[in-house]
Simulated assay, not measured.
Amino acid sequence: MSKRVAIVTGGSRGIGRESAERLGRDGFAVVVNYAGNETEAKAAVDAITGAGGEAIAVRADVAEVDQVTALFDAAETAFGGVDVVVHAAGTMYLAPVVDIDFDALDRMHRTNIRGTFVVGQQAARRIREGGAIITFSTSMLGIRMPSYAPYAATKGAVEAITMILAKELRGRDITVNTVAPGPTATALYLDGKDEETIAAAAKAAPLERLGLPEDVSEVIAFLAGPSRWINGQVIRVNGGVV
């Protein structure tokens, strides 16, 4: 078999980028998927290749079947196959239920739920034996903070898709798990929050800080590499906040 290959959706920023760079350091050839920010995707590729790894960037909307198919095609053409898919692409819309903007809700559903189905379908069809599929949920399902209902609902769907897919891949030697970070210092989480809100979130965990992207990427690396007996699980990566 050729070198192990990982596709990381949403790999140009935040936890996705940190995961892409970590897998590159671990010896994976990495396909950095991005939706629109080519500059950040190129920077992620440069970071991986600059450290001696192999990487390419491929643009694709995770909710579009043809584009995701082309993403997997590009991985196979460049590196010979796909062994790991880290589906980190997602978007967050927050609002109290009473104030929901349904157009914004539908856009988030398209990326977070439909995107998980689209990426999961290609991963299930094309990952090689001994591979891994890793999706992203959120610890907000347990924390249940006001205004997070729209976002948490989509991630509840991601957990359901992931757990069922793990059983559907019986006999393939492919693990399927979801990682559920708590408050993590990324642009996705910090955007629009004032200092008081961020400080309160940092105090919520017994470790009294926000998570960092590298805290989560360590778990991604474990699930993508040495872990072969963790399957069909939701792993809360939140410093003990819940």
Rank of each mutant, 00 (worst) to 15 (best):
R4P: 06
V5A: 10
A6L: 14
V8Q: 00
T9V: 09
G14L: 11
I15G: 02
G16W: 02
S19M: 11
S19I: 11
R22S: 10
F28Q: 01
Y34W: 09
Y34S: 05
E38N: 10
A41F: 11
A44C: 15
V45R: 07
D46F: 13
D46Y: 11
G53H: 08
E54R: 12
E54C: 10
V58G: 00
R59K: 15
R59V: 04
E64G: 05
E64I: 13
E64P: 00
V68T: 04
F72H: 01
A75F: 06
E76N: 08
A78M: 05
F79Q: 02
V82E: 05
D83S: 13
A88F: 10
L94M: 14
L94N: 08
L94T: 06
D99H: 09
F102E: 13
F102L: 15
H109E: 14
N112R: 03
N112M: 08
G115S: 09
F117D: 00
G120Q: 05
A123I: 06
R126V: 01
I127V: 15
A132E: 03
I133V: 14
T135D: 10
M140N: 13
L141D: 04
L141Y: 02
G142W: 11
I143F: 12
R144S: 12
R144H: 12
R144Q: 15
M145C: 07
P150T: 04
A152N: 04
T154R: 04
K155D: 03
I161C: 10
L169T: 01
L169I: 07
G171V: 09
G171D: 09
R172F: 08
T175A: 10
T175V: 02
N177R: 11
N177I: 08
N177P: 04
P183R: 06
A187S: 13
A187Q: 11
A187I: 06
Y189D: 04
Y189P: 00
L190W: 05
K193M: 14
E196S: 13
T197Y: 10
T197W: 11
A199D: 14
A199V: 03
A202I: 06
K203G: 07
A204G: 00
P206E: 04
P206C: 11
L210T: 00
E214Q: 14
V216K: 06
E218Q: 13
A221W: 01
F222N: 06
G225L: 13
G225C: 08
W229R: 10
W229M: 13
V234A: 07
